[in-house]
Computed example of a mutant assay.
Amino acid sequence: MTQSLPQRKLGQHLTVSAIGYGAMGLSEFYGDIDTAKASSMLHEVIDSGVTLIDTADMYGRGANEKLIGSVLKTLPASTRAGLTIASKCGIDRNSTSGYNRNINNHPDYIRKCCDESLARLGIEQIDLYYIHRIDPNAVIEETMQTLADLVKEGKIANVGLCEVSVPVLQRACAVYPVDVVQTEYSLWTREIEDDILPVLKKSNIGLVPYSPLGRGFLTGKIQNKDELSENDFRRTNPRFQDENLEHNKRLLQALEPMTVKYNCTMGQIALAWLLAQWEHIVPIPGTKNPKYLHENNQASLLKLDAADVQTLNDLKNTINIQGERYTPEGMKGIF
């Protein structure tokens, strides 16, 4: 039986569970893949009350969307109607293997990707469709007009942009309303607080933070990158390299007293802090473990004292996180 979670409004038209689910890791990047377990995990996600499921065409080169589509077709109509499926396009992984990618926002490419995503997902309309990364060689006004046309045609319902700058967002909104912005935001990635977040609040554009647990770092469970499997991309991520990782553990030390005070996990503190930043924030942690799924969901019920929120807010003034968010290849489309 599907449970219920607190609800939040994203943008003007979407109401979803306060904690969403990032499905990427079910198909790639975080170790070995087991399709049967991944399918079971998605059913667990839906039964837990999560209503926002996030994917992209590049995750597993379409495999993630196919996985979600295979689960959606098994659901009762009433359950499916309560879900918000978000997907993305704009990162063209043009090789057959590896991490290399190009950024492509051109209209013909967006249309092609949208049609392919609809087919893989087995649905007639994508509830929330993002441009995954901003292409410096494309014209944002043309990109937005293409998305507006897809809305008019009924192929997508709501428009989102990922990792967008304030000037580009403003140009985009002049063409068609942006409902949601998705970007990395967590206790160890705070840059948006200085620029994009105030604009989102002023414009009532919803925010979906990805990697809200710092790719697992903020759970306190990763002590050494060598603990990660050989095919886990974090082994090459700059922040997980030995010297950087040891330095960044200072952040975990600051969280430890609060886990005792609230009788909860570090990850729950990290998610509760995000939820306390603004009522229209919906983080999308990902996990392949049902135990951690339910832990994450419980963070939506955790209310931190105002003083503790402020203490966490102030950590960026005393703890300087070391290491870039991605390798140079992963930073393509992020400005």
Rank of each mutant, 00 (worst) to 15 (best):
L5A: 06
K9V: 12
L10E: 11
G20A: 02
G25L: 02
L26N: 08
S27H: 06
E28F: 12
G31W: 05
I33D: 01
I33M: 04
S48K: 05
G49N: 07
V50Y: 02
D54I: 01
D57E: 15
Y59N: 04
A63P: 02
A63Y: 01
N64E: 02
N64C: 06
K66H: 04
K66P: 00
G69L: 00
V71A: 13
P76C: 10
A77G: 09
R80Q: 07
I85H: 01
I85R: 00
K88N: 13
I91V: 13
N94F: 15
S97C: 04
Y99R: 08
N100M: 06
H106S: 15
I110S: 14
I110L: 13
S117E: 02
R120Y: 05
D127W: 01
Y130R: 09
H132A: 09
P136A: 12
M144F: 03
L147V: 07
V151H: 02
K152V: 11
A157T: 11
G160K: 06
L161M: 15
V166C: 08
V168H: 05
R171D: 09
V175H: 12
Y176E: 05
P177I: 06
T189P: 10
D195H: 07
G206E: 11
F217V: 01
T219F: 01
K221V: 12
K225L: 13
L228H: 10
N231P: 05
N231K: 13
R234C: 08
E243N: 14
P257H: 03
V260T: 15
G267M: 10
Q277T: 12
W278K: 10
H280P: 14
H280E: 15
I281M: 11
P285Y: 02
A299Y: 06
L301C: 10
D305V: 03
D308M: 09
V309L: 07
N313A: 05
T318L: 04
I321D: 04
G323L: 12
T327K: 06
P328S: 01
P328I: 00
E329T: 05
M331P: 01
G333D: 09
F335P: 14
